[in-house]
Design a protein around this nucleic acid. Structure first.
Lengths: 115, 115
DNA sequence: CAGGAATAATACGCATCCGAAACGAGTATT
DNA sequence: AATACTCGTTTCGGATGCGTATTATTCCTG
């Protein structure tokens, strides 16, 4: 089913969801961080620093730093790839799953009540 | 018309839109900043620092700093309120309007092609 | 096995952001 | 006019992020 949003509805949805996140006191992630988080949870693994950097069109230190931050928030974790120990594999966490569950609940609720 | 998104569709939409923004090299705004921007453009004026702080449930310096950043990006501007010169009124800009136009275009396109 | 390529992390100098508190300017109260 | 209040900004020390360049490991190739 295609979702034929109008401009005002699209922006209203983003506004309402953003307001819900900000007001709730959830960590103030940037667009880059949220996109990394969603990529790890929605795209098929494995996810490496290099792969994420290429996919997002950013440099590798950007990914490393975002993983540092989100790792300290327990939203993702890192593990060395045993088959090629140069690689680091980014993994999901329970906290990250719960975070995205709350996130999608919020999106769905706001989309449902869109004028 | 209610938009009955599923969890996977909600997260997919956010992922795709975020990826579009990040890859395009647009400024990496935080959730707070985007929400302030959308509030200024979608809610009826006037918008004051205090009003935005109350609405977003954050402190006033957070708003001041976000306006500094987005002001330097030409996404919003500030003007003293002549009827009460303690107040600062946050105003829209041409650049901000164009930014949100690109933004809603992106949302609509990604929503249209949701699986 | 030696040299080179690939990977993630770190160093660097600088900018931005944080919350809490203090501040200056403007308005309201008495 | 003097005092109290309101509003936005600034300051403070500390945290986080940036891009570029460099480093330490690990793998690959000749």
């Amino acid at each position: 089913m295609p979702f034929a949003l109008k401009h005002s509805q699209a922006l209203r949805l983003w506004h309402d969801v953003g307001l819900g996140i900000v007001r709730s006191g959830e960590p103030d992630l940037s667009s880059r961080q949220i996109t990394i988080l969603l990529t790890v949870y929605m795209e098929p693994p494995p996810h490496t620093v290099r792969g994420l950097a290429a996919k997002l069109n950013v440099t590798k230190p950007v990914i490393t730093r975002a993983l540092d931050t989100m790792g300290s928030l327990d939203l993702v974790s890192r593990r060395r790839d045993d088959s090629d120990r140069r690689n680091v594999v980014v993994q999901r966490t329970v906290q990250g799953s719960l975070y995205l569950e709350r996130f999608s609940d919020l999106i769905i609720e706001k989309a449902r009540t869109l004028p």
